[in-house]
Simulated assay, not measured.
Amino acid sequence: MKIILAQPRGFCAGVVRAIDTVERALEKYGAPVYVRHEIVHNRHVVESLKAKGARFVEELSEVPSGAVTIFSAHGVSRKVENEAKSRALPTIDATCPLVTKVHNQGRRYVAQGRILVFIGHAGHPEVEGTLGQIDGELHLVESVEDVEKLPIAPDAPIAYVTQTTLSVDDTRGVIAALNRRFSDVEGPEIRDICYATQNRQTAVRELSRVCDVIIVVGAPNSSNSNRLREIGEEAGLPSYLVVGGADINAEWVKNAHVVGVTAGASAPEILVGEVVQALMRIEPSEVSDLSGLKESVSFRLPAELLS
């Protein structure tokens, strides 16, 4: 059996920045610091930061007065920002800059007098944050079917923005439906969807050409990780989402000659290593990296932590 690792895989620049933000805040201000929502969708990362003194909460009401508070990489609504201000909580914003870019794009379109359509998954933290950042008429759609149900006149000026972790293909289909139904549509290019999402999806498509089975390392609540597994399935391959090496089932690879392994943008490389070791225990294997794009993107830490 051969094991081929996707390239790129795992942590993206936004996730690295978010984790570094929490660690730097702990160094600068001391434990505990409070983080609203999971900083990224990965239990291993969250537990590691908890051990260093981070405290994760879902609501700001759980944060003691005066405690340093960090907003997660997914972003938050203005309501949450205003609540923090009203309580005079010292806050640090770890929102991924590419999510902030979506917020800014949406505001520009609304300022132009356009009705905004946001393509995303209802209930996802990034979606809730974005919906709460943009004033004006705004509609959430998840599918082509949702586009057909929009209560908007066909000649109304509209614009769209997208959740950063969506499938490029699924987004392209929804955008095409918007252009079919409405006569005045503006929106960012497909390439403006998160670079890391696109790169990892492209890598899985390449991996599916040379593998018999695909294993994606990521959390069950990670949107981009779930989409990587779906892409493998769409290519006709048995594809599995695992948290780590303990989830590997020997039956999955019983008849496989080549197993492809990738990881979502919030999954650390240590978990990829665990999966590889679990596969090696089933059958000693040759491990190699698929040739692919080498990412060099990095984001600066929040200003509060640079001094």
Rank of each mutant, 00 (worst) to 15 (best):
P97E: 11
R107C: 01
H74I: 07
T69F: 04
T95N: 09
K101N: 13
G106Y: 12
N82W: 06
K79V: 14
I92E: 01
S77W: 12
K79S: 10
V102Q: 06
D93N: 14
V68E: 11
C96D: 09
R108K: 15
T91G: 08
V102W: 12
S72I: 05
T91Q: 11
R87F: 04
N104M: 15
S77N: 05
V76H: 02
A84F: 07
V76A: 02
A67D: 01
A84M: 08
A88T: 02
P90W: 09
D93H: 06
C96A: 03
E81R: 15
D93Y: 03
D93G: 02
L89Y: 09
Y109H: 15
R78C: 03
E81L: 15
A67F: 01
I70F: 08
R107V: 08
K79G: 01
P90S: 02
S72M: 10
K85C: 04
V68M: 13
S65I: 00
A84P: 00
H74T: 03
V99T: 03
D93P: 02
P90Q: 10
N82V: 03
T91L: 13
H74V: 07
A94R: 05
E81P: 00
N104A: 15
G106H: 08
P97Q: 06
V99I: 12
G66A: 04
K79I: 09
R108E: 15
D93M: 10
N82G: 00
N104F: 12
I92N: 02
V99S: 08
L98T: 08
V102K: 15
K101G: 02
G106I: 10
H103A: 12
G66P: 02
R108Q: 14
H103S: 04
A73K: 05
A84K: 13
H74C: 05
R107H: 07
S72P: 00
S77P: 03
V68G: 02
V99L: 06
R87L: 12
G66S: 02
T69G: 00
A88K: 15
Y109S: 07
I92Y: 09
Q105T: 13
R78E: 04
C96I: 13
A84D: 01
R87V: 02
A88M: 12
P97D: 13
D93K: 07
S72W: 02
P90Y: 11
I92K: 07
S72D: 01
G66V: 09
K101P: 05
V68L: 07
C96G: 05
Y109M: 14
N82H: 09
R108C: 06
T95D: 07
G106P: 06
V80S: 11
H103F: 15
R87Q: 01
K101E: 14
L89G: 00
N82R: 15
R78N: 14
R87I: 08
E81C: 11
I70E: 00
V80H: 04
V68T: 12
N104L: 15
Y109Q: 10
K85V: 04
P90E: 05
P97F: 11
R78W: 12
I92P: 04
S77Q: 08
R78A: 04
S77C: 03
K79H: 06
I70L: 15
V80M: 06
T69A: 01
V102M: 11
R78I: 00
A88G: 04
A73C: 05
Y109N: 07
G66T: 08
R87N: 07
V68K: 12
A73I: 00
A67I: 06
L98D: 13
R108W: 10
T69V: 02
